[in-house]
Simulated scan of single mutants.
Amino acid sequence: MEDEQYEEWMLQSIGLYKDLHDFELQDPTRVIEWIGDNSICVAGYEGNKRNEILQLLVPQKLQTTENPGLCPERDLKVEHGGFVDEPVYSLKHIPQSSFLVTSGPATCPLRVWKIGPEDRDVIYPVGTIPSENGEDSWSKIATTSLAPPCVLHGSQANKIHLTEIESSKRVCTLGLYVRDPVSVLSFLDSRTVFLCCKNGRQYIVDVRQPRSAAEGIVGGEALSDATWCAAVQPWKEEACSMVACVSSNGHMILTDTRDFTAPLKRGMWHIPGPSLSDQFLNVCWAPSLVDCISISGYGGSVDIFDTKCWDLSMQSREPLFTHRGHSVMGACGNRREPVVTAHTWHPWKERTVLSAASDGSLHVWNWSDSQACKKTQL
């Protein structure tokens, strides 16, 4: 971006953001995983090199409910770190423990890690879990607060396993018989699993009865030619949680877990730019803003949508806010606009989002809630 355009954007950002932090990671990451309320884990995904896994303490300003004014610590601080010999495509923390699980290329097993105590600054490997990945696919993973600690993992619907972390004992295999590639795995509660396949087919399975599953296809067969991903509302753990589904063609459909085939709300998302693949497509629910979702993965922006007033018409929906900081402030070595590779919401701070891009940038931003800014795209 030209210097004049950059300066204009910086002036606009003063009124559009309450906070905007720009950090530079040593390597780009496609994972941002919260460890408690004050630190995150990131990991490199570049091939043919050793990649770092880092636990980073967020700046003091992001750790308090009140505005602390000027803070001495304004940067990310490395608390623990480790190395892995392959790219990291997914990383999950086991709740209420010091365990991490990572997955990478199809030929690699899942790796189990442990975050060292306070007097040791290492993240060290403690085991592996065999993966049964399809060709050119990698294991999606999900964790929950089961005892003993377990991980749900797999790349195809017919090979989704629940495995104990410490013993590598397989607890169960979900009773699905289709070989559809999986895009998302998550837990609705400690015993109920949600699964979204890339073709839009979705399932709910109780791990206590893994051979019985509720299923449906979002949007019907007419929209199954796109790649789909989905997210479940984080604060609703009952059986009728809301599900936000987003396709690589720009479709947005909201359903609930009682009936995936009956949309409650729909819309179209304007894809901000071309993408070489849909590997970074991501949708999240805001944990502290009712009815708000965020989408990224195509181009250098993150779009925030308020779905409160949506209806069933498949019409274009305007974002509540668009963060374009990665595309404005960064440029990859080939001069292409960076692509947002991951984003996540702060666990309890309203309107605060963390986003990472392919140029190694990591932004923490909180947009203004004034009505004027709600109508403005940055």
Rank of each mutant, 00 (worst) to 15 (best):
E7S: 13
L16Y: 12
Q26A: 13
G36R: 05
G36E: 00
S39M: 00
S39V: 00
Y45G: 03
Y45W: 03
N51W: 08
I53N: 11
K61L: 09
K61R: 13
T64E: 09
T64I: 15
V78E: 06
V84S: 02
D85E: 14
Y89T: 02
P95T: 04
G104T: 05
P109D: 08
K114R: 06
K114Q: 15
P125R: 04
V126G: 06
V126S: 03
P130I: 01
P130T: 04
S131L: 05
N133L: 07
G134I: 03
W138H: 11
A142R: 01
T143H: 14
T144D: 10
L146Q: 04
P149M: 11
C150S: 11
G154T: 10
S155D: 04
E164K: 15
L174W: 12
L174P: 00
G175E: 10
V184K: 15
S190T: 14
R191T: 11
T192C: 12
N199R: 14
I204D: 07
R211H: 15
G219E: 02
G220A: 07
A222F: 13
W228A: 03
A231I: 00
S241K: 05
V243W: 10
V246H: 03
S247V: 06
N249Y: 02
M252C: 15
D259Y: 04
F260C: 01
R266H: 08
G273I: 02
S275E: 09
A286D: 05
P287D: 06
V290G: 02
S294W: 05
I295E: 03
Y298D: 03
Q315A: 03
T322R: 13
H326R: 03
R336T: 10
E337S: 14
V340W: 01
H346V: 06
S355N: 02
A356I: 04
D359I: 00
T376Q: 06
T376C: 09
